[in-house]
Amino acid sequence: MPEPILQLSGVHTHIGEYHILQGVDLTVPRGGLSVLLGRNGAGKTTTLRTIMGLWKARAGTVRFDGRDIAALPTPDIAQLGIAYVPESMAVFSDLTVRENLYLAARNGPLDEQRVEWIFGFFPALKKFWHYPAGNLSGGQKQMVAIARAIVEPRKLLLIDEPTKGLAPAIIQSLIAAFRELKQTDTTILLVEQNFSFVRHLGDTVSVMDDGRVVHAGGMRELVEDQDLQQRLLGLALSSHQ
């Protein structure tokens, strides 16, 4: 088996007095799309933020591409080829769509061919290219946030709840974008609550509860086992199709 692109071992993260991650073990295979599921408050977002160095692990290792990055500052982690799309989207409201993407292009001017590729998934971005991002709808801001993360090739994308509050048509655009990204050298780790969305995209899945990973395996196994869904998540995916 090839070495995983990302591996967390025994990771503990505290936020103030709260012990959020309590020994997380998580493996993300190289290539494809891995999904992180769990109830609200299970520790999913904290896991992504710990990987990015926004919150520091108090114990354990975070290995990316064979290197422990747990102690690195966030800018250095980003320079290694990891991009993070937070649930809040965090676009620069006063800057245009173009300027938001330009800031994310670390290696110089925007690659116009890649920008056209992004427009294929999110045509609204072409229409609003010179509009302030703060004037866009929530769904359009989500497009900007994801486009910013993929404006240059990345080794790993960390994406937190991309479909939250989005219209079905925009979700279909996201599905198309992620399916094409899966065919590249980009690995995706996705936190999501829309089970209909992830069941069609995920290759592997890990389930968190109370700050730990309590299940890891193939997405097909979880989709086909309603008893397992009920035990891990308290619901059946079939009710979210």
Rank of each mutant, 00 (worst) to 15 (best):
I51T: 07
L80N: 07
L233I: 11
G10D: 08
T46S: 10
L8C: 06
M219N: 08
R58K: 10
A236C: 13
Q230P: 11
V11K: 02
D185R: 15
R30D: 00
W129D: 03
S88R: 14
F128Q: 13
V28G: 02
L80H: 09
G139T: 02
V115Y: 00
T45I: 04
V144L: 02
T45H: 05
L166G: 02
G108S: 04
I171F: 07
Q22D: 09
V97Q: 01
N194Q: 09
E161V: 02
T204H: 13
M52A: 06
P86I: 03
D210E: 13
L72I: 12
D111Q: 06
H12M: 06
L201T: 08
R154K: 13
L72S: 05
F121S: 12
A83L: 05
L189M: 07
E161T: 03
G165N: 00
S137K: 02
A216V: 00
E180C: 09
G81D: 07
D209M: 12
K182H: 11
I118Q: 02
G139L: 00
L36E: 01
T186L: 11
N40L: 09
R63P: 01
K164M: 15
V91L: 13
G218M: 09
R58F: 05
L80E: 12
K155P: 04
L21W: 03
T45D: 10
D94R: 15
P73H: 04
R67N: 08
D203Y: 07
T61R: 15
V191Y: 03
A236N: 15
M208F: 09
E152N: 03
R114F: 10
E221M: 04
V198D: 13
A83R: 06
G43M: 01
A78C: 13
P86Q: 06
I150K: 11
G139F: 00
S206Q: 14
R154A: 10
A145M: 05
R98L: 13
T46R: 01
F121E: 11
A90W: 07
F121V: 08
S206M: 14
H12W: 11
P132L: 00
P162T: 05
L136H: 10
P4M: 08
N135K: 08
I20S: 08
L232T: 05
G134H: 07
A105I: 09
A83S: 13
M208I: 12
A78Y: 04
W55R: 07
Q142W: 00
T47C: 03
R49V: 05
Q79W: 00
T50D: 07
R63E: 13
Q230M: 14
N135P: 00
T187C: 09
P168N: 10
D209T: 05
M1T: 13
S173C: 14
